[in-house]
Design a protein around this nucleic acid. Structure first.
Length: 270
DNA sequence: GTTGAGCGTT
């Protein structure tokens, strides 16, 4: 009975597919089959897997023979804890048999199902349970489900997806990663508060966006003129001083009193 | 050892 999805769809003439979400990544069709089969005649159970890794994507499709049983399974298995995870069962929206489904409702024998379907809510519990919206949002962005697939599928080379010739021109300190309009406020508050700690780094090993420098903006603040080793703006003409001194000693003799440390001494060079 | 809010294959 582990040939689900192996030989492809058996017959989708009068079958109804249910989408099972939030299942564990280790859950297999064999595990779901008995569970769903208890509530009705399961024709096929299919769990889409990733082509690259071959791992399950976290959701499965259970094909029922009758809509009533399918709806029943949805009502009974939706919110059930499987393998330690709460699964969510609902009618598949897209798919080969999506024609029979209208707005998540079944066209056939909808008289009985209608009442039952409305009885249950899709997912209102997560809102009440978790108040941390930031956390949720963060998790979403991190999801590798479709973001990566999309790129792969579209065939994007990822060359100029983040390339902004105008924006990054003179501001390598851009942190658009968190840029959402509130960054400014948070940043200012943080400074005012005098807290060097950055509470917005969920993952220590992944906190740095893509500057490539572990120090991030701190380094930049410490020595703005220090290292122009930005991968974005190579500035080849600046990297090689015409003096021919890699040490920059000459620079040290002249540069410091250029504009920064010259309040009212001399007009410097104009 | 692994993440997560998402719609499918011979």
């Amino acid at each position: 009975m582990s040939h689900f999805g192996r030989s492809g769809p058996p017959d989708i003439r009068d079958t109804f597919s249910l989408l099972v979400l939030n299942i564990t990544f280790r859950t297999t069709a064999d595990d779901l089959f008995p569970l769903f089969d208890k509530y009705g005649k399961v024709v096929d159970v299919f769990i889409p897997r990733d082509r690259r890794t071959g791992e399950s994507r976290g959701f499965a499709f259970v094909r029922y023979k009758y809509a009533e049983e399918a709806q029943k399974a949805v009502d009974r298995l939706d919110g059930r804890v499987v393998d330690g995870r709460e699964i969510m069962v609902q009618f598949a929206k897209y798919g080969p048999n999506a024609e029979r489904i209208r707005s998540g409702r079944i066209v056939e024998s909808s008289s009985k199902i209608k009442g039952r379907s409305r009885s249950r809510s899709p997912r209102p519990r997560y809102r009440d349970g978790y108040r941390d919206k930031d956390k949720d949002r963060d998790y979403r962005r991190r999801s590798r489900s479709r973001s990566k697939d999309r790129y792969d599928r579209d065939g994007y080379r990822g060359r100029d997806r983040d390339y902004h010739p105008r924006s990054v021109s003179h501001s390598p300190d851009h942190r658009k990663e968190y840029g959402r309009g509130h960054d400014e406020k948070r940043h200012r508050r943080s400074q005012s508060h005098g807290s060097p700690n950055s509470p917005r780094s969920p993952s220590p090993h992944r906190a740095y966006p893509r500057d490539g420098s572990p120090n991030g903006r701190n380094d930049n603040k410490h020595s703005p003129n220090g290292s122009p080793n930005s991968p974005r703006s190579p500035s080849p003409h600046r990297a090689h001083p015409r003096d021919g001194s890699p040490n920059g000693r000459n620079d040290n003799k002249r540069s410091p009193t250029s504009k920064s440390v010259s309040p009212c001494n001399e007009p410097v060079d104009s």
